[in-house]
Amino acid sequence: MLGEEGPGVRRGLLPGGVAGRRPAGLAVRAGGRPAPAARGLVADQLGGPAVRLLAETLPLDAERREKSALWLSFVTAARTRPELRPRAAELQAGLDELVRRVLVEADRSGALAPGLDLDLETRRLSALLDGLTLQAVQHPDLVGPDELHAVLRRHLDTLAAS
């Protein structure tokens, strides 16, 4: 069952009826495909559109922070409850596919530095989003929306063509 929608993101339900999102934003559509589409979002440079899309996966407000806390509880439970593992893996695969599509489109547009290993950069950016989500959930007073955006923008800057 799919729930509310945001800009390019479909939010779903976790097993057991717990409303939640892949780090504050990404869930997977029926059929296992991620809802967001990266094509056309990165035109001339890696930046604004990519930042906005990827920021949707971060806990930038109280509602997303709460949903991120639910996601964190769910993936933690999935470590010891085998019946939850497929859904946890599906959520991770959805985030990875979103990140990969953003990077592929940025590369096609010439926005990325030449020669980047997109598999490695996908894992690196996905891990960054997960880590930022974890920190924002654990320390909301220390890691707020401004810091989340700044770190994401800085990371994307390191990938950009000169």
Rank of each mutant, 00 (worst) to 15 (best):
M1D: 09
E5R: 15
G6A: 08
P7R: 13
P7K: 12
G8F: 03
V9E: 10
R10I: 07
R10N: 07
G12K: 13
L13S: 12
L13E: 14
P15A: 05
P15K: 04
G17W: 05
G17K: 05
G17Q: 04
A19S: 04
R21K: 11
R22T: 07
P23H: 14
L26T: 09
A27Q: 12
R29M: 06
R29K: 03
A30M: 05
A30N: 07
R33G: 07
P34F: 01
P34N: 04
A35I: 00
A35M: 02
P36D: 02
A37Y: 05
L41K: 15
L41W: 14
A43D: 13
A43M: 11
D44E: 14
D44R: 10
L46C: 12
G47I: 04
V51C: 11
R52K: 06
L54I: 09
A55L: 08
E56F: 04
T57Q: 13
T57H: 14
D61V: 01
D61G: 02
D61R: 04
D61K: 00
E63Q: 13
E63W: 09
R64L: 10
E66H: 12
E66N: 09
K67C: 00
K67R: 15
A69D: 11
W71P: 08
L72K: 07
L72D: 12
L72Q: 14
S73I: 01
T76C: 00
A78Y: 00
A78K: 02
A78T: 02
A78Q: 03
T80V: 08
R81I: 02
L84M: 07
R85V: 00
P86D: 08
R87W: 12
A89W: 06
L91H: 00
Q92D: 15
Q92E: 15
G94I: 00
L95K: 10
L95S: 08
V99C: 01
V102W: 02
E105W: 12
D107L: 09
D107N: 11
R108D: 09
S109E: 10
P114D: 06
P114M: 00
G115E: 07
L116Y: 06
L116R: 04
L118I: 02
D119L: 03
D119M: 04
L120M: 10
E121I: 00
T122H: 03
R123Y: 09
R123D: 15
R123W: 10
R124S: 01
S126E: 08
L128H: 05
L129Y: 14
G131N: 15
G131D: 14
T133H: 14
T133S: 15
Q135A: 15
A136G: 03
P140G: 01
G144I: 04
G144W: 01
G144A: 11
P145S: 15
P145D: 12
L148K: 08
A150D: 06
A150V: 01
A150F: 02
V151E: 15
L156K: 03
D157V: 08
D157Q: 14
T158D: 11
L159A: 11
A160P: 11
A161M: 10
A161E: 13
S162N: 08
S162R: 13
